[in-house]
């Protein structure tokens, strides 16, 4: 799905076809490299898994521009991820790499794929419940199961945790505290 926008130009006529083909290959290299850029606060999840990449543009002269969405506006890991993206793409052979913060597209926790949510749960972080267009409420926050034992008999201890994107919960079944990735619109 993430490469879909690069297929369209291939349908163009011969001369342009070649260029599009090259760009298409390059864009696949970019997406594959971005899989290596992990969220420093959740090292099992890449920026692609998080839905943080809103665009990849292959330019002339072996250049590339990546558009990055912040999960939280004040996320302190953002600069580190920008540097990491630059490093990965330079390593992949691009000569010029720009990473721009995209303020036009809004990141929401619904941008995470179902696979990402499974990875989060295995990591020990309860994944965010789907929001769709619902207004955030405690009721939504409470649609959570314990990542350790699977029980839904859990309660919110604090909507702030060890990082901006986490809340602290407690499971009555296994009597353990756990963290939840907060749903954000």
């Amino acid at each position: 799905m993430k490469c879909a926008k690069w297929f369209a130009p291939i349908l163009m006529l011969n001369g342009k076809h070649m260029i599009s083909e090259v760009k298409n290959q390059k864009s696949e290299i970019v997406w594959a490299s971005l899989e290596n850029v992990k969220d420093p606060e959740i090292p099992v999840i890449s920026v692609v898994d998080m839905g943080m990449i809103s665009g990849v543009e292959i330019g002339d002269n072996n250049s590339v521009t990546v558009k990055l969405l912040p999960t939280f506006v004040g996320c302190p890991a953002l600069d580190m991820m920008k540097q990491d993206i630059r490093g990965q793409l330079l390593k992949a052979g691009f000569a010029e790499v720009s990473v721009n913060i995209d303020y036009e597209t809004r990141w929401s926790s619904d941008r995470m794929t179902p696979e990402t949510k499974i990875k989060l749960e295995k990591f020990g972080l309860a994944p965010p419940p789907e929001l769709k267009d619902e207004e955030l409420s405690e009721e939504i926050l409470n649609r959570v199961r314990c990542p350790h034992c699977g029980s839904t008999d859990t309660t919110l201890r604090s909507s702030f945790g060890s990082t901006l994107c986490r809340a602290i919960r407690f499971c009555f079944n296994c009597k353990q505290g756990f963290e939840q990735f907060k749903p954000v619109q």
Partner: peptide, 15 residues
């Protein structure tokens, strides 16, 4: 929890 809450809000607001 309140230590974390005020510290997190500080990060958000400054962001």
């Amino acid at each position: 929890e309140e230590d974390l809450a005020f510290s997190s809000m500080a990060q958000d607001k400054i962001g």
